[in-house]
Structure formats: C-alpha cells, structure tokens
Design a protein around this nucleic acid. Sequence first.
DNA 1: TCTGGGGTCCTAGGACCC
DNA 2: TCTGGGGTCCTAGGACCC
Length: 402
Amino acid sequence: MERKILHVDVNSAFLSWTAVEMLKNGAEVDIRTIPAVIGGDEEKRKGIVLAKSIPAKKYGIKTAEPIYFAKQKCPNLQIYPSNFKIYRKYSDALYNLLCEYTNQIERFSIDECFLDITNFIPKNKTDIEIAYEIHKRVKQELGFTVNIGVAPNKILAKMASDFEKPDKVHTLYKSEIPTKMWNLPVSDLFMVGKKSSPKLERLGIHTIGDLATKKQEDIISLFGKFGETIWQYANGIDLSIVNSEREKPKCIGNSATLPEDVNDIEKIEEVLLALTEQTTYRLRKHELLASTIGVQIRTKEFKNYSHQRTLMTPTNSTKIIFETAKDVLKELYKGEKIRLIGVKVDKLTSMQAQQISLFDTPKNDKQQKLDKAMDKIKEKYGYNSITRARQMKIDEMMDFKE
DNA sequence: TCTGGGGTCCTAGGACCC
DNA sequence: TCTGGGGTCCTAGGACCC
C-alpha cells in the first residue's frame, strides 16, 4: 500500500526562531523582514552564516559562507548571535504539535521532521488537508512558518518541502516526478554535494532527470554504492521507514576553533581537557561507554589530521579518555600552528552490556565517583557551574553550550 | 578576502588469522 | 626460491547532511 509521508521543514529556522523570541521580548522590528543573518563571532574566527532572512538571500548571501563575504554583498546586513537553548525550545514546541498527528515521527534534525500519517488520516480528510492544517497551526500557535512536503516516501517528501519557500505546502507524488523534480539541477538532489555535482556535470548529467534516465549500472560503476543511492533518489525510490525510535548516537565529539593559532602544547592540552570533559559528560548522560578515542587537529592552512586508538576495555572515565587523547595527540602533533582541536569517542556500547574488567581497581572506582559527582552538579546548576580551576579561562574563551 | 560544530556513512589499505 | 584466498578488524581521510 502507498504510504503518506510528510516532511516538515522550518523556514530559516535559527533566524525565524530568533525573530519570534525578539518579538516576544518587545522588539520593534521583525528580523525576517530585513537583510539579517544569524552568525558566529568573527573576532573569535567563527564568523559564518548559520541562517539568513529572505531579504538577505536577495543579496546573494548563502548559508555557511563567511560573514565577511556576506557583509560585502550587503553592507548594512544585521548580524545576530546564535542561541541553541532557544532553538531547542522552539524545536520541542514544533515536535509536540506534530505528535498530535501521528506516533510515527522522526526528528531528522533540530528543524526537520518526517511524519508517517498513513494510518492516522481521518476518513473525512486527505493527506494534503492535514499538511495544510499543520502548516496553519504552526504559524498561528508558534509564530513561525514551515514548508511541508507531501509524498509517498521520505526522499520525495524532502525534495517537495524544498521547492518554493517560504510558508508553502507542496506535493510530489510518483506521477509528478517528471514535471516537478526532473527539471531541477542535479545539485538540488539530496546527497549531491559540491564534489559530486561537478563530476556529474562532466558526464553530461545536468538535471535530476538526466541522472534518473541513465542506466543504473553505469552510475553504479562510476560512483559505487553512492551511485546506487543517488540514482534511486533521482527516480523517487526510497524504501527507508520513518524511524520514531530515538537511537543512541554512534559517536560523540567536541571540537573548537581557537581565537588564535596556537603551537604551545600546554595550551593545546588545556583545551583538549575541556573538550574531553564535555564529550565524556555527554557520553555518561547517554549511559554509554567508548572504545575508540580520536583527536583531530586543523592547521592554520586548513589541513585536517586525525589519529585514533582503540582501547581493550570500553570506558567513560574522563581521566582515562583524556590520558589516551593526550597520547594520541602526541603521535599526531608535529609542532605546527593549529587552528582547531577536536576530540571524538567512537565504538560506543551501552553501559548495561559492560563487561567486568580485570582492571576495575579501587583507584578507578574513585575516579568514577568523581566523574559522577561532577556530572550531578552540572546537571543541577548548569554545565559551567563546576570546572577545574586552570580551565576557567578556557571555558570563558570557548563559551560552552549546555 | 574567509572559511562552525554536530553528526553519519563509505572507502582504501594494512595487519592478522586460518 | 616463490609465495593463495577469504575473512575480520582497525585506521585515516573524505563526502555529505543540517
């Protein structure tokens, strides 16, 4: 049986949510109506565009481009900082509203959800009517606009919600694929990014339709497994289900671009410790243990390097993970000036499945208790409420999120 | 000129085992 | 001297997404 899938996508999410919050706090201008962006701090070298208003888009400003360029395109551009606490609040409000329509709902990102409403459409209504109802209610009750794609599977629903913006409902049924999707540039297809689209162009594949009508074997022989995926997407084929199970993460990591390039190993290790504490805190919150510890650095020339190491026994101990990360960093670091440092834990297993280790000494037990005590305080009073003394300066510098 | 931070998935090459 | 083939696991790096 044909399924009924919706993809709900918040228009310029970070900017819209900031606008709603500002209006609630008595602001006179709605930043959605002026050339404005949400962006990082240029002085801290995090100056990229995270979201843009429609008037800003008219100046040719693009998401993820440096603010520096955006300002050249539009000198009177208004720039507002990001605030993930607020985004989480609005994202949750949207999710709660959508849950009234189905229990098969997948949070695809902070501002996108897939809904499978196949078994939840009342007899007197159609899928399109439900989409319009959600569209209207979100605007009236939450104050921001969404695009909704209505289709028989996830890829088509996602492509449909990406059609004309903002504040629109679009359908993309199988019969509409040639007229609504095949005329679009191949780079508009989900998963075709800035590396594969020039490669496709060189092969004379300019539109999604060009890709769809090529022989599947030819695309597979050129692009491997990835080729199979994009060929299927171009033909509107996607058998994946709307997955409402909240899955455990497969890896957890934190990284930070430093305000200045650094080659002082002590300073680098201090930042590494702060990042490790953040990562292990999240690891423990998920009740997971990690087997692989990885460290990444980015040089001032934007070269990325990484090393990792797998431990005999999975752990979530800040001390063990930090000691390992320091070791891995030593292998990796050749003394050059670095711009970014990151830590990542991988091969995660649930704590319940933990094997009793021969190395569970009283000393390790003490470390575990210390981690737990620190976590509790962070839980109760906020992440920054407790911190190792020598780290205070770094925390200020890196403005940690909750 | 300037280029965030959080993820997922894939690939290629090497080590090691039988 | 000449030296297979299948499998698993690990690592480094890269593409892509929001």
